[in-house]
Write a protein that binds this DNA or RNA. Structure first.
Length: 566
DNA sequence: TTAGGGTTAG
Protein backbone atom coordinates (compact mmCIF):
# COMPACT_ATOMS: atom_id res chain seq x y z
CA UNK A 1 0.00 0.00 0.00
CA UNK A 2 2.69 2.43 1.02
CA UNK A 3 4.70 1.52 -2.07
CA UNK A 4 1.79 2.41 -4.28
CA UNK A 5 1.23 5.72 -2.58
CA UNK A 6 4.56 7.37 -3.16
CA UNK A 7 6.98 6.22 -5.82
CA UNK A 8 9.19 9.22 -5.08
CA UNK A 9 10.24 7.53 -1.86
CA UNK A 10 11.21 4.36 -3.60
CA UNK A 11 14.18 3.64 -1.36
CA UNK A 12 11.98 3.86 1.69
CA UNK A 13 9.38 1.75 -0.06
CA UNK A 14 12.06 -0.83 -0.70
CA UNK A 15 12.80 -1.04 3.05
CA UNK A 16 9.13 -1.62 3.76
CA UNK A 17 9.00 -4.20 0.99
CA UNK A 18 11.88 -6.09 2.59
CA UNK A 19 9.79 -6.56 5.73
CA UNK A 20 7.01 -8.31 3.87
CA UNK A 21 7.48 -12.05 4.25
CA UNK A 22 5.69 -13.30 1.15
CA UNK A 23 5.27 -10.44 -1.29
CA UNK A 24 2.82 -11.19 -4.11
CA UNK A 25 3.41 -10.33 -7.80
CA UNK A 26 1.60 -6.99 -7.44
CA UNK A 27 3.82 -5.92 -4.58
CA UNK A 28 6.91 -6.86 -6.57
CA UNK A 29 5.54 -5.01 -9.55
CA UNK A 30 4.79 -1.88 -7.53
CA UNK A 31 8.41 -1.70 -6.43
CA UNK A 32 9.71 -2.46 -9.92
CA UNK A 33 7.49 0.34 -11.21
CA UNK A 34 8.77 2.68 -8.53
CA UNK A 35 12.32 2.21 -9.75
CA UNK A 36 11.17 2.41 -13.39
CA UNK A 37 9.72 5.85 -12.72
CA UNK A 38 12.23 7.31 -10.35
CA UNK A 39 15.37 5.33 -11.06
CA UNK A 40 17.91 3.92 -10.67
CA UNK A 41 16.30 2.20 -13.64
CA UNK A 42 18.54 -0.85 -13.74
CA UNK A 43 17.32 -1.67 -10.26
CA UNK A 44 13.89 -2.47 -11.63
CA UNK A 45 15.42 -5.14 -13.86
CA UNK A 46 17.47 -6.50 -10.98
CA UNK A 47 14.32 -6.77 -8.92
CA UNK A 48 12.56 -8.54 -11.74
CA UNK A 49 15.37 -11.12 -11.83
CA UNK A 50 15.06 -11.60 -8.06
CA UNK A 51 11.35 -12.05 -8.45
CA UNK A 52 11.87 -14.74 -11.10
CA UNK A 53 14.44 -16.52 -8.93
CA UNK A 54 11.91 -16.61 -6.11
CA UNK A 55 9.57 -18.37 -8.50
CA UNK A 56 7.05 -15.54 -8.62
CA UNK A 57 5.26 -15.15 -11.96
CA UNK A 58 5.06 -11.63 -13.41
CA UNK A 59 1.83 -9.86 -14.36
CA UNK A 60 1.29 -7.61 -17.36
CA UNK A 61 2.00 -4.48 -15.28
CA UNK A 62 5.40 -5.94 -14.48
CA UNK A 63 6.35 -5.87 -18.13
CA UNK A 64 4.89 -2.39 -18.64
CA UNK A 65 7.13 -1.12 -15.85
CA UNK A 66 10.18 -2.92 -17.22
CA UNK A 67 9.70 -1.50 -20.70
CA UNK A 68 9.36 1.94 -19.20
CA UNK A 69 12.71 1.48 -17.45
CA UNK A 70 14.41 0.23 -20.63
CA UNK A 71 13.01 3.19 -22.57
CA UNK A 72 14.28 5.58 -19.91
CA UNK A 73 17.88 4.32 -20.13
CA UNK A 74 17.63 3.71 -23.88
CA UNK A 75 18.75 0.13 -23.40
CA UNK A 76 17.23 -1.67 -26.35
CA UNK A 77 19.15 -4.91 -25.83
CA UNK A 78 17.70 -5.21 -22.34
CA UNK A 79 14.33 -4.33 -23.87
CA UNK A 80 14.70 -7.14 -26.37
CA UNK A 81 15.43 -9.58 -23.55
CA UNK A 82 12.26 -8.53 -21.75
CA UNK A 83 10.41 -8.76 -25.07
CA UNK A 84 11.64 -12.37 -25.37
CA UNK A 85 10.42 -13.05 -21.83
CA UNK A 86 6.91 -11.88 -22.69
CA UNK A 87 6.84 -14.52 -25.42
CA UNK A 88 8.47 -17.25 -23.33
CA UNK A 89 6.10 -16.83 -20.42
CA UNK A 90 3.12 -17.17 -22.72
CA UNK A 91 0.30 -14.80 -23.45
CA UNK A 92 1.94 -11.55 -22.39
CA UNK A 93 3.10 -10.57 -25.85
CA UNK A 94 -0.50 -10.36 -27.01
CA UNK A 95 -1.58 -8.26 -24.01
CA UNK A 96 -2.63 -4.75 -25.05
CA UNK A 97 -0.84 -2.91 -22.21
CA UNK A 98 2.31 -4.92 -22.66
CA UNK A 99 2.27 -4.32 -26.42
CA UNK A 100 1.76 -0.60 -26.02
CA UNK A 101 4.59 -0.18 -23.57
CA UNK A 102 6.78 -2.36 -25.77
CA UNK A 103 6.14 -0.01 -28.71
CA UNK A 104 7.05 2.88 -26.41
CA UNK A 105 10.29 1.19 -25.41
CA UNK A 106 11.37 0.56 -29.02
CA UNK A 107 10.54 4.05 -30.27
CA UNK A 108 12.15 5.71 -27.24
CA UNK A 109 15.31 3.78 -27.96
CA UNK A 110 15.20 4.97 -31.56
CA UNK A 111 14.07 1.67 -33.12
CA UNK A 112 10.95 2.85 -34.86
CA UNK A 113 10.84 -0.11 -37.24
CA UNK A 114 10.77 -2.56 -34.32
CA UNK A 115 7.96 -0.55 -32.74
CA UNK A 116 6.07 -0.69 -36.01
CA UNK A 117 6.58 -4.46 -36.18
CA UNK A 118 5.13 -4.89 -32.69
CA UNK A 119 2.21 -2.69 -33.73
CA UNK A 120 1.59 -4.66 -36.93
CA UNK A 121 1.63 -7.97 -35.09
CA UNK A 122 -0.60 -6.95 -32.18
CA UNK A 123 -3.88 -8.86 -32.06
CA UNK A 124 -5.67 -5.86 -30.50
CA UNK A 125 -4.79 -2.21 -30.79
CA UNK A 126 -6.28 0.84 -29.18
CA UNK A 127 -5.91 4.60 -29.58
CA UNK A 128 -2.78 4.52 -27.46
CA UNK A 129 -1.03 2.09 -29.80
CA UNK A 130 -1.90 4.20 -32.84
CA UNK A 131 -0.99 7.50 -31.24
CA UNK A 132 2.33 6.22 -29.96
CA UNK A 133 3.33 5.29 -33.46
CA UNK A 134 2.00 8.52 -34.98
CA UNK A 135 4.10 10.50 -32.53
CA UNK A 136 7.14 8.35 -33.26
CA UNK A 137 6.80 9.14 -36.97
CA UNK A 138 6.33 12.87 -36.34
CA UNK A 139 9.44 12.92 -34.16
CA UNK A 140 11.46 11.19 -36.86
CA UNK A 141 10.26 13.82 -39.34
CA UNK A 142 8.21 11.34 -41.36
CA UNK A 143 4.94 13.26 -41.54
CA UNK A 144 3.68 11.17 -44.46
CA UNK A 145 3.68 7.95 -42.46
CA UNK A 146 2.18 9.79 -39.49
CA UNK A 147 -0.57 11.18 -41.72
CA UNK A 148 -1.29 7.78 -43.25
CA UNK A 149 -1.69 6.20 -39.83
CA UNK A 150 -3.86 9.07 -38.65
CA UNK A 151 -6.19 8.71 -41.64
CA UNK A 152 -6.54 5.00 -40.89
CA UNK A 153 -7.47 5.66 -37.28
CA UNK A 154 -11.14 4.71 -36.94
CA UNK A 155 -11.88 7.01 -33.99
CA UNK A 156 -9.70 10.04 -33.35
CA UNK A 157 -9.57 11.55 -29.89
CA UNK A 158 -8.06 14.78 -28.61
CA UNK A 159 -4.66 13.22 -28.00
CA UNK A 160 -4.39 11.77 -31.50
CA UNK A 161 -5.43 15.07 -33.10
CA UNK A 162 -3.01 16.94 -30.88
CA UNK A 163 -0.22 14.60 -31.90
CA UNK A 164 -0.78 15.63 -35.51
CA UNK A 165 -1.14 19.34 -34.80
CA UNK A 166 2.02 19.36 -32.69
CA UNK A 167 3.89 17.09 -35.08
CA UNK A 168 3.19 19.40 -38.01
CA UNK A 169 4.23 22.44 -35.99
CA UNK A 170 7.44 20.71 -34.92
CA UNK A 171 8.20 19.81 -38.51
CA UNK A 172 7.98 23.42 -39.72
CA UNK A 173 4.56 23.00 -41.32
CA UNK A 174 2.64 25.70 -39.48
CA UNK A 175 -0.10 26.18 -42.05
CA UNK A 176 -0.90 22.48 -42.08
CA UNK A 177 -0.86 22.44 -38.27
CA UNK A 178 -3.47 25.19 -38.18
CA UNK A 179 -5.47 23.40 -40.84
CA UNK A 180 -5.52 20.22 -38.74
CA UNK A 181 -6.51 22.20 -35.69
CA UNK A 182 -9.46 23.71 -37.55
CA UNK A 183 -10.52 20.27 -38.75
CA UNK A 184 -10.25 19.05 -35.18
CA UNK A 185 -12.56 21.80 -34.00
CA UNK A 186 -15.01 21.13 -36.83
CA UNK A 187 -15.08 17.49 -35.79
CA UNK A 188 -16.28 18.66 -32.37
CA UNK A 189 -13.20 17.39 -30.55
CA UNK A 190 -12.36 19.22 -27.34
CA UNK A 191 -9.20 21.30 -26.99
CA UNK A 192 -6.92 21.47 -23.99
CA UNK A 193 -3.72 23.32 -23.18
CA UNK A 194 -1.51 20.79 -24.93
CA UNK A 195 -3.36 21.26 -28.22
CA UNK A 196 -3.21 25.02 -27.78
CA UNK A 197 0.52 24.99 -27.27
CA UNK A 198 0.92 23.23 -30.63
CA UNK A 199 -1.31 25.76 -32.38
CA UNK A 200 0.39 28.71 -30.71
CA UNK A 201 3.78 27.42 -31.75
CA UNK A 202 2.51 27.12 -35.35
CA UNK A 203 1.30 30.73 -35.23
CA UNK A 204 4.67 31.81 -33.87
CA UNK A 205 6.35 30.28 -36.91
CA UNK A 206 4.01 32.10 -39.28
CA UNK A 207 4.82 35.37 -37.57
CA UNK A 208 1.55 36.93 -38.67
CA UNK A 209 -0.33 39.03 -36.13
CA UNK A 210 -3.75 38.01 -37.45
CA UNK A 211 -3.05 34.40 -36.49
CA UNK A 212 -1.53 35.48 -33.19
CA UNK A 213 -4.74 37.19 -32.14
CA UNK A 214 -6.81 34.28 -33.36
CA UNK A 215 -4.77 31.82 -31.26
CA UNK A 216 -4.95 34.05 -28.19
CA UNK A 217 -8.74 34.27 -28.47
CA UNK A 218 -9.10 30.53 -28.68
CA UNK A 219 -6.88 30.07 -25.65
CA UNK A 220 -8.94 32.54 -23.63
CA UNK A 221 -12.25 31.06 -24.76
CA UNK A 222 -11.18 27.51 -23.98
CA UNK A 223 -10.37 28.52 -20.42
CA UNK A 224 -6.59 28.17 -20.85
CA UNK A 225 -5.63 31.82 -20.83
CA UNK A 226 -2.13 32.88 -19.85
CA UNK A 227 -3.11 34.25 -16.42
CA UNK A 228 -3.53 30.83 -14.90
CA UNK A 229 -1.70 28.56 -17.30
CA UNK A 230 2.05 28.86 -17.26
CA UNK A 231 2.66 26.68 -20.31
CA UNK A 232 0.15 28.47 -22.53
CA UNK A 233 1.43 31.79 -21.20
CA UNK A 234 5.04 30.97 -22.07
CA UNK A 235 4.03 29.81 -25.54
CA UNK A 236 2.11 33.06 -26.05
CA UNK A 237 5.13 35.14 -25.00
CA UNK A 238 7.20 33.37 -27.62
CA UNK A 239 4.46 33.73 -30.22
CA UNK A 240 3.92 37.47 -29.73
CA UNK A 241 7.67 38.09 -29.82
CA UNK A 242 8.01 36.18 -33.06
CA UNK A 243 5.02 38.02 -34.51
CA UNK A 244 6.79 41.30 -33.89
CA UNK A 245 4.70 42.37 -30.93
CA UNK A 246 7.13 42.33 -28.02
CA UNK A 247 4.91 44.74 -26.06
CA UNK A 248 2.05 42.25 -26.06
CA UNK A 249 4.52 39.51 -25.09
CA UNK A 250 5.48 41.60 -22.09
CA UNK A 251 1.83 42.18 -21.17
CA UNK A 252 1.29 38.42 -21.14
CA UNK A 253 4.39 37.94 -19.01
CA UNK A 254 3.12 40.52 -16.54
CA UNK A 255 -0.38 39.07 -16.10
CA UNK A 256 0.89 35.55 -15.51
CA UNK A 257 0.23 34.43 -11.94
CA UNK A 258 2.87 31.73 -12.17
CA UNK A 259 6.13 31.96 -14.08
CA UNK A 260 8.85 29.42 -14.65
CA UNK A 261 12.14 29.24 -16.46
CA UNK A 262 10.33 28.90 -19.81
CA UNK A 263 8.38 32.11 -19.24
CA UNK A 264 11.49 34.05 -18.28
CA UNK A 265 13.65 32.57 -21.02
CA UNK A 266 11.03 33.18 -23.71
CA UNK A 267 10.71 36.79 -22.60
CA UNK A 268 14.48 37.29 -22.47
CA UNK A 269 14.88 35.75 -25.92
CA UNK A 270 11.99 37.93 -27.11
CA UNK A 271 13.67 41.10 -25.85
CA UNK A 272 16.94 39.98 -27.45
CA UNK A 273 15.30 39.41 -30.83
CA UNK A 274 13.86 42.89 -30.72
CA UNK A 275 17.08 44.61 -29.79
CA UNK A 276 15.88 45.40 -26.26
CA UNK A 277 19.16 44.30 -24.73
CA UNK A 278 18.81 46.29 -21.51
CA UNK A 279 15.32 44.94 -20.87
CA UNK A 280 16.68 41.42 -21.43
CA UNK A 281 19.49 42.01 -18.93
CA UNK A 282 17.12 43.53 -16.40
CA UNK A 283 14.80 40.55 -16.65
CA UNK A 284 17.74 38.21 -16.22
CA UNK A 285 18.68 40.04 -13.01
CA UNK A 286 15.05 39.79 -11.84
CA UNK A 287 15.10 36.09 -12.60
CA UNK A 288 18.19 35.33 -10.55
CA UNK A 289 16.53 36.96 -7.54
CA UNK A 290 13.73 34.37 -7.67
CA UNK A 291 13.95 30.66 -6.82
CA UNK A 292 13.90 29.82 -10.51
CA UNK A 293 17.23 28.62 -11.87
CA UNK A 294 18.29 29.93 -15.28
CA UNK A 295 19.04 27.17 -17.78
CA UNK A 296 21.07 26.90 -20.95
CA UNK A 297 18.37 28.56 -23.05
CA UNK A 298 18.24 31.52 -20.69
CA UNK A 299 21.94 32.07 -21.25
CA UNK A 300 21.62 31.77 -25.00
CA UNK A 301 19.02 34.54 -24.74
CA UNK A 302 21.13 36.77 -22.52
CA UNK A 303 24.25 36.33 -24.65
CA UNK A 304 22.30 36.99 -27.85
CA UNK A 305 20.92 40.16 -26.28
CA UNK A 306 24.49 41.30 -25.61
CA UNK A 307 25.46 40.45 -29.19
CA UNK A 308 22.63 42.45 -30.71
CA UNK A 309 23.55 45.47 -28.60
CA UNK A 310 27.31 45.10 -28.93
CA UNK A 311 27.61 44.72 -25.15
CA UNK A 312 30.90 42.83 -25.23
CA UNK A 313 31.97 43.32 -21.61
CA UNK A 314 28.64 42.35 -20.07
CA UNK A 315 28.50 39.29 -22.31
CA UNK A 316 31.99 38.23 -21.30
CA UNK A 317 31.14 38.54 -17.61
CA UNK A 318 27.95 36.54 -17.92
CA UNK A 319 29.68 33.85 -19.95
CA UNK A 320 32.41 33.53 -17.36
CA UNK A 321 29.96 33.37 -14.47
CA UNK A 322 27.66 30.76 -16.01
CA UNK A 323 29.19 27.70 -14.46
CA UNK A 324 30.52 29.14 -11.23
CA UNK A 325 27.45 31.11 -10.15
CA UNK A 326 24.60 29.41 -11.93
CA UNK A 327 25.82 25.84 -12.38
CA UNK A 328 25.24 25.83 -16.13
CA UNK A 329 28.33 24.59 -17.96
CA UNK A 330 28.75 26.46 -21.26
CA UNK A 331 27.94 24.21 -24.22
CA UNK A 332 29.23 24.53 -27.77
CA UNK A 333 26.16 26.68 -28.45
CA UNK A 334 27.15 29.13 -25.75
CA UNK A 335 30.60 29.28 -27.28
CA UNK A 336 28.90 30.03 -30.59
CA UNK A 337 27.11 32.95 -28.93
CA UNK A 338 30.38 34.26 -27.55
CA UNK A 339 32.14 33.90 -30.90
CA UNK A 340 29.23 35.81 -32.42
CA UNK A 341 29.46 38.52 -29.76
CA UNK A 342 33.21 38.96 -30.16
CA UNK A 343 33.22 38.56 -33.92
CA UNK A 344 30.38 40.91 -34.74
CA UNK A 345 31.84 43.60 -32.56
CA UNK A 346 35.04 43.34 -34.58
CA UNK A 347 37.20 41.25 -32.21
CA UNK A 348 37.78 38.65 -34.90
CA UNK A 349 41.15 37.43 -33.67
CA UNK A 350 39.90 36.94 -30.14
CA UNK A 351 36.90 35.08 -31.56
CA UNK A 352 39.19 32.78 -33.51
CA UNK A 353 41.31 32.17 -30.40
CA UNK A 354 38.21 31.25 -28.43
CA UNK A 355 37.26 28.71 -31.10
CA UNK A 356 40.76 27.24 -31.03
CA UNK A 357 40.89 26.92 -27.25
CA UNK A 358 37.34 25.90 -26.39
CA UNK A 359 37.14 22.67 -24.38
CA UNK A 360 34.97 20.77 -26.85
CA UNK A 361 35.04 20.24 -30.59
CA UNK A 362 33.62 23.38 -32.29
CA UNK A 363 30.32 22.64 -34.04
CA UNK A 364 28.79 24.22 -37.12
CA UNK A 365 27.26 26.99 -35.05
CA UNK A 366 30.64 28.09 -33.75
CA UNK A 367 32.35 28.17 -37.15
CA UNK A 368 29.23 29.70 -38.69
CA UNK A 369 29.27 32.56 -36.19
CA UNK A 370 32.90 33.18 -37.04
CA UNK A 371 32.23 33.08 -40.77
CA UNK A 372 29.29 35.47 -40.40
CA UNK A 373 31.50 37.92 -38.52
CA UNK A 374 34.13 37.70 -41.23
CA UNK A 375 31.51 38.63 -43.80
CA UNK A 376 30.49 41.69 -41.81
CA UNK A 377 34.03 42.89 -41.15
CA UNK A 378 35.50 41.75 -44.45
CA UNK A 379 38.13 39.26 -43.34
CA UNK A 380 38.65 36.73 -46.14
CA UNK A 381 41.56 34.98 -44.39
CA UNK A 382 39.70 33.91 -41.27
CA UNK A 383 36.59 33.32 -43.39
CA UNK A 384 38.56 30.77 -45.38
CA UNK A 385 39.52 28.90 -42.19
CA UNK A 386 35.95 28.89 -40.86
CA UNK A 387 34.49 27.87 -44.20
CA UNK A 388 36.86 24.93 -44.64
CA UNK A 389 35.58 23.47 -41.37
CA UNK A 390 31.98 24.21 -42.28
CA UNK A 391 32.29 22.47 -45.65
CA UNK A 392 33.34 19.36 -43.72
CA UNK A 393 30.71 19.63 -40.98
CA UNK A 394 27.81 20.74 -43.16
CA UNK A 395 28.52 19.61 -46.72
CA UNK A 396 25.01 20.53 -47.87
CA UNK A 397 24.79 23.95 -46.20
CA UNK A 398 24.45 26.37 -49.09
CA UNK A 399 24.49 29.30 -46.65
CA UNK A 400 28.17 28.73 -45.89
CA UNK A 401 29.14 28.95 -49.56
CA UNK A 402 27.12 32.15 -49.87
CA UNK A 403 28.74 33.72 -46.80
CA UNK A 404 32.22 32.91 -48.02
CA UNK A 405 31.48 34.10 -51.51
CA UNK A 406 29.95 37.31 -50.15
CA UNK A 407 33.02 37.92 -48.03
CA UNK A 408 35.17 37.68 -51.16
CA UNK A 409 32.70 39.86 -53.08
CA UNK A 410 32.83 42.64 -50.46
CA UNK A 411 36.62 42.54 -50.73
CA UNK A 412 36.37 42.73 -54.53
CA UNK A 413 38.01 39.30 -54.90
CA UNK A 414 35.86 38.30 -57.84
CA UNK A 415 38.01 35.32 -58.91
CA UNK A 416 37.50 33.73 -55.52
CA UNK A 417 33.79 34.51 -55.72
CA UNK A 418 33.62 32.59 -58.98
CA UNK A 419 35.62 29.69 -57.52
CA UNK A 420 33.29 29.29 -54.51
CA UNK A 421 30.16 29.60 -56.64
CA UNK A 422 31.51 26.92 -58.97
CA UNK A 423 32.20 24.66 -55.99
CA UNK A 424 28.61 25.06 -54.76
CA UNK A 425 27.24 24.45 -58.25
CA UNK A 426 29.34 21.32 -58.58
CA UNK A 427 27.70 19.99 -55.44
CA UNK A 428 24.29 20.74 -56.87
CA UNK A 429 23.54 23.31 -54.18
CA UNK A 430 21.18 26.14 -55.03
CA UNK A 431 20.60 29.40 -53.24
CA UNK A 432 17.20 29.89 -51.65
CA UNK A 433 15.53 32.79 -53.44
CA UNK A 434 14.91 35.77 -51.18
CA UNK A 435 11.31 36.68 -50.54
CA UNK A 436 9.36 38.96 -48.22
CA UNK A 437 5.77 39.03 -47.19
CA UNK A 438 3.65 41.78 -45.75
CA UNK A 439 0.16 41.91 -44.31
CA UNK A 440 -2.43 44.22 -45.84
CA UNK A 441 -4.96 46.10 -43.70
CA UNK A 442 -7.39 43.21 -44.13
CA UNK A 443 -4.81 40.77 -42.77
CA UNK A 444 -4.14 39.19 -46.19
CA UNK A 445 -0.52 38.13 -46.67
CA UNK A 446 1.19 39.29 -49.90
CA UNK A 447 4.43 37.72 -51.02
CA UNK A 448 7.21 39.37 -53.07
CA UNK A 449 10.36 38.01 -54.68
CA UNK A 450 13.30 40.18 -55.76
CA UNK A 451 12.52 41.89 -59.06
CA UNK A 452 8.98 40.53 -58.75
CA UNK A 453 6.57 42.33 -61.09
CA UNK A 454 3.74 39.82 -60.91
CA UNK A 455 1.67 41.49 -58.22
CA UNK A 456 -1.69 42.83 -59.55
CA UNK A 457 -0.80 46.28 -58.20
CA UNK A 458 2.75 46.19 -59.56
CA UNK A 459 2.61 49.49 -61.46
CA UNK A 460 1.34 51.37 -58.39
CA UNK A 461 4.04 49.70 -56.29
CA UNK A 462 6.72 50.68 -58.78
CA UNK A 463 5.47 54.27 -58.83
CA UNK A 464 5.40 54.46 -55.03
CA UNK A 465 8.92 53.09 -54.89
CA UNK A 466 10.21 55.63 -57.46
CA UNK A 467 8.60 58.50 -55.53
CA UNK A 468 10.06 57.29 -52.29
CA UNK A 469 13.50 56.89 -53.81
CA UNK A 470 13.47 60.47 -55.08
CA UNK A 471 12.44 61.84 -51.70
CA UNK A 472 15.08 59.76 -49.96
CA UNK A 473 17.79 60.90 -52.32
CA UNK A 474 16.80 64.51 -51.65
CA UNK A 475 17.25 63.66 -47.99
CA UNK A 476 20.79 62.38 -48.51
CA UNK A 477 20.26 58.66 -49.19
CA UNK A 478 22.88 57.04 -51.40
CA UNK A 479 22.34 53.46 -52.59
CA UNK A 480 24.82 51.12 -50.90
CA UNK A 481 26.35 49.48 -53.94
CA UNK A 482 28.42 47.15 -51.75
CA UNK A 483 25.19 45.30 -51.00
CA UNK A 484 25.16 43.92 -54.54
CA UNK A 485 27.28 40.85 -54.60
CA UNK A 486 27.65 40.55 -58.34
CA UNK A 487 30.42 41.95 -60.48
CA UNK A 488 28.23 44.23 -62.59
CA UNK A 489 28.15 47.93 -63.49
CA UNK A 490 27.07 50.53 -60.94
CA UNK A 491 23.88 51.29 -62.89
CA UNK A 492 23.00 47.63 -62.91
CA UNK A 493 23.70 47.48 -59.18
CA UNK A 494 21.31 50.37 -58.58
CA UNK A 495 18.65 48.67 -60.68
CA UNK A 496 19.04 45.39 -58.78
CA UNK A 497 18.89 47.14 -55.40
CA UNK A 498 15.71 49.00 -56.25
CA UNK A 499 13.61 45.89 -56.55
CA UNK A 500 14.84 43.92 -53.54
CA UNK A 501 11.85 42.08 -52.16
CA UNK A 502 11.75 43.99 -48.86
CA UNK A 503 11.53 47.28 -50.76
CA UNK A 504 8.62 45.96 -52.84
CA UNK A 505 6.95 44.78 -49.64
CA UNK A 506 7.53 48.19 -48.04
CA UNK A 507 5.99 50.04 -50.99
CA UNK A 508 2.99 47.74 -50.95
CA UNK A 509 2.69 48.25 -47.19
CA UNK A 510 2.70 52.02 -47.64
CA UNK A 511 -0.10 51.73 -50.19
CA UNK A 512 -2.26 49.18 -48.44
CA UNK A 513 -2.06 49.91 -44.71
CA UNK A 514 -2.35 53.00 -42.58
CA UNK A 515 -0.51 51.89 -39.46
CA UNK A 516 2.69 49.99 -38.68
CA UNK A 517 4.00 48.05 -41.68
CA UNK A 518 5.03 44.51 -40.77
CA UNK A 519 7.36 42.74 -43.15
CA UNK A 520 8.79 39.25 -42.82
CA UNK A 521 11.83 38.24 -44.86
CA UNK A 522 13.17 34.70 -45.24
CA UNK A 523 16.83 35.81 -45.39
CA UNK A 524 18.88 38.47 -43.66
CA UNK A 525 17.92 42.03 -44.54
CA UNK A 526 20.57 43.66 -46.74
CA UNK A 527 22.42 46.83 -45.72
CA UNK A 528 20.97 48.93 -48.47
CA UNK A 529 17.40 47.95 -47.63
CA UNK A 530 18.11 48.63 -43.98
CA UNK A 531 19.31 52.13 -44.84
CA UNK A 532 16.41 52.65 -47.22
CA UNK A 533 13.75 51.62 -44.68
CA UNK A 534 15.40 53.75 -41.97
CA UNK A 535 15.03 56.77 -44.24
CA UNK A 536 11.52 55.79 -45.28
CA UNK A 537 10.37 55.60 -41.66
CA UNK A 538 11.52 59.19 -41.19
CA UNK A 539 10.12 60.66 -44.39
CA UNK A 540 6.75 58.94 -44.29
CA UNK A 541 6.32 59.03 -40.52
CA UNK A 542 5.34 55.36 -40.66
CA UNK A 543 6.75 52.71 -38.31
CA UNK A 544 8.09 49.60 -40.02
CA UNK A 545 8.83 46.27 -38.35
CA UNK A 546 10.93 43.83 -40.32
CA UNK A 547 11.52 40.28 -39.14
CA UNK A 548 14.42 38.75 -41.03
CA UNK A 549 15.80 35.28 -40.47
CA UNK A 550 17.82 36.56 -37.52
CA UNK A 551 15.81 39.05 -35.55
CA UNK A 552 13.45 42.02 -35.59
CA UNK A 553 14.14 45.54 -36.78
CA UNK A 554 11.84 48.28 -35.51
CA UNK A 555 12.22 51.32 -37.74
CA UNK A 556 10.95 54.56 -36.24
CA UNK A 557 11.71 58.12 -37.30
CA UNK A 558 14.89 57.27 -39.16
CA UNK A 559 16.34 54.90 -36.56
CA UNK A 560 16.35 51.14 -36.15
CA UNK A 561 16.10 49.27 -32.84
CA UNK A 562 19.12 47.18 -33.82
CA UNK A 563 21.31 50.30 -33.74
CA UNK A 564 22.65 49.23 -37.16
CA UNK A 565 24.17 46.21 -35.49
CA UNK A 566 22.87 42.98 -36.98
C1' DT B 1 -2.71 2.63 -15.32
C1' DT B 2 0.32 2.33 -21.68
C1' DA B 3 -0.49 8.06 -26.03
C1' DG B 4 -0.08 14.52 -27.14
C1' DG B 5 3.32 20.14 -24.66
C1' DG B 6 6.49 25.62 -24.22
C1' DT B 7 12.16 28.70 -24.71
C1' DT B 8 18.15 28.54 -28.05
C1' DA B 9 22.45 30.03 -31.33
C1' DG B 10 25.49 31.15 -37.43
Amino acid sequence: MLIKVDTRMVTYAHLVFNQVKYPNPFLWTALIRGYAIQGPFKKSVMLYNCMRREGIGPVSFTFSALFKACGAVLDVSLGRQIHAQTILLGGFASDLFVGNTMIGMYVNCGFLDCGRKVFDEMPDRDLVSWTELIVAYTKSGDMNSAGELFVGLPVKDMVAWTAMVTGLAQNAKPKEAIDYFERMQNAGVETDEVTLVGVISACAQLGVSKYANWARNIAEKSGFGPTHNVVVGSALIDMYSKCGNVEEALKVFEIMKERNVFSYSSMIVGFAMHGRAHAAMQLFHDLVKTDIKPNRVTFVGVLTACTHAGMVEQGRQIFESMEEFYGVAPSANHYACMVDLLGRSGHLKEALELVQTMPMEPNGGVWGALLGSCRIHGNPDIAQVAASHLFELEPDGIGNYILLSNTYASAGMWDDVARVRKLARKKGLQKNPAFSWVESKEGVVHEFFAGDMTHPKCSEIKQALDDLLERLKANGYQPNLGSVLYDVSDDEKKRLLKTHCEKLALAFGLLSTDSTIRIVKNLRICEDCHLFICGASQITGRDVVVRDNMRFHHFHDGKCSCGNFW
